[in-house]
């Protein structure tokens, strides 16, 4: 690990200024991914700006009646929050399906969205990786990649996004809020992660130096019965082979609306929009599923 400076900040503007004035600066929150990657030699910041003391924690009701989850809220607090559990159970489930109790106590919502792929080739600086060092190639394309992307990949990168939380957020059409020195902005989660194309190193559309301040959820989900299901190589404490967040609005036996997001299959939470369109307006029964019994 390279040497670095460390500064703890209490105001957003202070954080933005510190990162803007130094190219090598990175925000540090829970550190569960960043510190790990620094140990692997993948990340080598010259300064860490610790944002956990910023007033960005907690879950509150938004002006529109939706939920606003502060960026430094820990994963544990998101999953345990009564309103998240009541209105967006798939989000609570998704968070709880990720990592371990210890890591969820450290990890934050903002950091979770910005965590980097767990592709083994990305984490090993002696392997070629276009995401880590653009233009070097992708070892995973011809390598061992049975848990890599099946949707939206390119010859330049077949890595998947590892977040469980983001999959549920995608299903709920969440919006990411951020601040920069030039003012704030918001990005729908569906546009937050750009297509891989030939620029796998560009993992989000956040402006340079921006700090995620919150994630907001809409006023109402389709139903109070949204669910998250994750399949992995062991029963817990493992990344997904595939996961699904789904919410289904049913009225009179008809699928009024449906949202399905898949995890572990692409460089971003993958909205299964064709499947949604296929199901929307159809009968809510097992028979709807192609190949179903």
């Amino acid at each position: 690990m390279r040497e670095f400076a460390y500064q703890r900040v209490t105001q957003v503007r202070e954080a933005l200024t510190l990162v803007a004035e130094n190219d090598g600066s990175r925000y540090l929150a829970g550190g569960t991914n960043l510190v790990d990657l620094m140990k692997c030699g993948v990340e080598a910041p010259t300064r860490l700006v610790d944002v956990r003391s910023l007033p960005l924690g907690g879950v509150r009701e938004g002006a529109d009646g939706g939920l606003v989850i502060g960026a430094t809220t820990t994963n544990s607090d998101v999953a345990a929050h009564p309103e998240v559990r009541r209105r967006f159970p798939a989000l609570s489930q998704a968070v709880l399906a990720g990592a371990s109790g210890q890591l969820r106590n450290m990890a934050t919502v903002g950091g979770n969205l910005l965590q980097r792929t767990r592709c083994a080739y990305f984490a090993d600086p002696s392997q070629a990786c276009n995401k880590r060092v653009p233009g070097t190639g992708c070892s995973a394309v011809d390598g061992a990649h049975h848990n890599h992307a099946v949707f939206g990949w390119s010859r330049h990168c077949v890595a998947t996004h590892p977040s469980d939380m983001a999959v549920a957020l995608a299903a709920f059409d969440a919006v990411v809020h951020y601040e920069t020195l030039d003012g704030g902005g918001e990005i729908p989660l569906s546009e937050f992660y750009p297509p891989v194309g030939d620029t796998p190193q560009q993992e989000t559309v956040l402006p340079s130096g921006a700090l995620i301040t919150a994630v907001s959820l809409p006023k109402a989900a389709l139903s109070p019965w949204s669910r998250y299901r994750k399949v992995r190589d062991r029963a817990s404490y493992a990344f997904a082979n595939v996961s699904i967040a789904a919410d289904l609005g049913v009225h009179d036996g008809v699928v009024r609306d449906v949202r399905i997001a898949l995890g572990g299959v692409a460089s971003q939470p993958w909205r299964a929009r064709s499947a949604e369109a296929f199901l929307r307006g159809g009968p809510a029964s097992f028979g709807t599923v192609p190949g179903g019994g």
Binding site: Y6, R8, T32, D36, N105, M106
Partner: peptide, 27 residues
Amino acid sequence: CDHGQCGACTVLCDGRRVVSCLMLAVA
């Protein structure tokens, strides 16, 4: 493991369990 993958380094920080291998001492 030193990478948050095993839990052997678990300690409590303000009563909450964390893996001390991924927490910087300064933090």
